[in-house]
């Protein structure tokens, strides 16, 4: 709980600073959050490499690890499908396609605005960024109430990079490896699943 609150405060401070015009553009290094991410990935890697328990757990889990990205795909598609009946301004296929970004907002928004239109593209951007933000903010609570796989499932494709640090912190290093695996599989599948969904139109 405390973990989530601190995370939300830092995030909110960033959004607020950004809206009120504060920006690091003068540094001329592109999006600075990418460097914080690089640093984190390196540090999380050190944590995984130094922990011999990680490899023992992985050996025992073997094929089960494949289940994880599958639960995300099945869950996202069924969740967004059911939800589309309650939303008046969006159809079932568009909801499922937007959901199938699994948090990979740059790619999914581009594909969807190409296949459909700008508005749905922006919606894909917003929806998939929210997936990442929600996971970052709620990870401690998700682990507490829905088990250690929950933040990995919630993070979707982002569980291999942006949300990995919080997952490693709250689910443990053994789950960090599962998290990377699930994120990589989903990231690769995003363009295929979105295109496949629109084949049905």
């Amino acid at each position: 709980m405390i973990g989530s609150i601190i995370i939300i405060l830092f995030f909110a401070a960033g959004v607020f600073a950004g809206i009120s015009g504060f920006s690091l553009n003068f540094l001329n290094i592109g999006d600075p959050s990418i460097y914080a991410l690089y640093l984190l990935m390196f540090l999380v890697g050190i944590g995984i490499g130094s922990d011999s328990n990680v490899w023992n757990v992985l050996k025992k889990m073997n094929f089960k690890i494949l289940l994880v990205p599958f639960t995300v795909i099945a869950g996202t598609l069924s969740g967004t499908y059911i939800c589309s009946f309650f939303l008046k301004d969006i159809g079932a296929l568009d909801s499922m396609a937007i959901g199938s970004g699994f948090g990979y907002y740059s790619l999914s928004s581009i594909i969807i605005s190409k296949i459909r239109n700008e508005t749905l593209g922006v919606m894909a951007l917003l929806a998939n960024i929210s997936r990442e933000i929600f996971t970052l903010l709620a990870a401690p609570l998700l682990v507490k109430y829905f088990g250690k796989l929950a933040p990995i499932a919630s993070g979707g494709a982002t569980s291999m990079d942006t949300t990995l640090p919080v997952i490693a912190k709250y689910s443990g290093k053994e789950y960090a490896v599962i998290s990377v695996f699930s994120g990589v599989v989903l990231t690769i599948l995003v363009p295929f699943i979105i295109t496949l969904i629109y084949r049905f139109i």
Binding site: V15, A17, G18, P32, S33
Partner: peptide, 9 residues
């Protein structure tokens, strides 16, 4: 990271 992500949003 969270602060910078908020900032870019």
């Amino acid at each position: 990271l969270l602060f910078l992500l908020g900032l870019s949003i």
